[in-house]
C-alpha cells in the first residue's frame, strides 16, 4: 500500500471532477477526520488517515481491501471508477438524475436511462457530463454520463437515451466475481 504518485493523482482527480467538480476539495480537506487516497495493487482506496496507519501492519499480499475502493487503474494507465465509490460520489454530486419507480429495475439490470423513466433532473446538466442516478426516494442507484443537456433532453422522444450508464448497484450481484479481487 502506498500513496498515489503525482501522475496517478492527476488521473484520478480528473476523473472524479467529472462527477463532483470542485467538491473534490471536501474529499481531501477534512480537518476533523483527514482522509487520504492509497494505492494497493492496482486499486485506489479512500480511507481515514487513522485506519490507513493501522493497515500498514498488514502485509501487501494479505491486505485485500481497506476503507472504500474508488476504482482501479487499467493496464493502459486510465482510471476506472467502480460502483463502490458511489457513496462518495453521491454525497458530493454535481449533476443528478432521479428515475421513476418503473425505471429502477431496467437501470439496475444494466440499461441506459431512457427519457420515459426520468422523474426529475438537475437544470444545468451539460452534454457528456458525469451524472449520479437516484431513485425517487433519493437512494443512489449508479452513475453515468448525460447523453444530452437538460434543455435538449426536454424535447427527446420517450424512448431516447438521456444518460449512458457507467455503473449501477446491480453490479454487486452481476460482477461479484470480478469487481472485488
Amino acid at each position: 500500500m502506498r500513496p498515489l504518485t503525482e501522475e496517478e493523482t492527476k488521473v484520478v482527480f480528473e476523473k472524479l471532477a467529472n462527477y463532483i467538480g470542485r467538491n473534490i476539495a471536501y474529499l481531501v480537506d477534512n480537518k476533523e477526520d483527514p482522509h487520504i487516497f492509497r494505492l494497493q495493487k492496482d486499486r485506489v482506496y479512500y480511507i481515514s488517515d487513522k485506519i490507513a496507519k493501522f493497515a500498514t501492519s498488514v502485509s501487501r499480499v494479505n491486505l485485500m481491501s481497506v476503507g472504500i475502493c474508488m476504482g482501479k487503474f487499467t493496464k493502459t494507465g486510465k482510471f476506472k471508477l467502480h460502483v463502490t465509490s458511489l457513496s462518495i460520489l453521491s454525497k458530493y454530486a454535481k449533476y443528478k438524475i432521479w428515475i421513476k419507480q418503473n425505471g429502477e429495475m431496467p437501470f439496475l439490470y444494466g440499461n441506459h436511462v431512457l427519457k420515459a423513466h426520468i422523474g426529475r433532473m438537475s437544470d444545468d446538466i451539460p452534454e457528456h457530463a458525469g451524472v449520479i442516478v437516484y431513485s425517487m426516494s433519493d437512494v443512489p442507484l449508479g452513475f453515468g454520463v448525460s447523453a444530452k443537456s437538460t434543455g435538449e433532453a426536454r424535447n427527446l422522444q420517450p424512448t431516447a437515451i438521456t444518460a449512458f450508464r457507467q455503473s449501477d448497484i446491480g453490479e454487486y450481484l452481476r460482477e461479484e466475481d470480478t469487481l472485488f479481487t
Partner: peptide, 20 residues
C-alpha cells in the same frame, strides 16, 4: 473474502480493513 468485501462496500462500512 470476495463476498466479504462486496458486503462491506454495499453496506457502506468505511472503517474496515480486510485481510487474508
Amino acid at each position: 473474502t470476495k463476498s466479504l468485501i462486496a458486503n462491506i462496500h454495499r453496506l457502506g462500512c468505511t472503517n474496515t480493513i480486510v485481510c487474508n
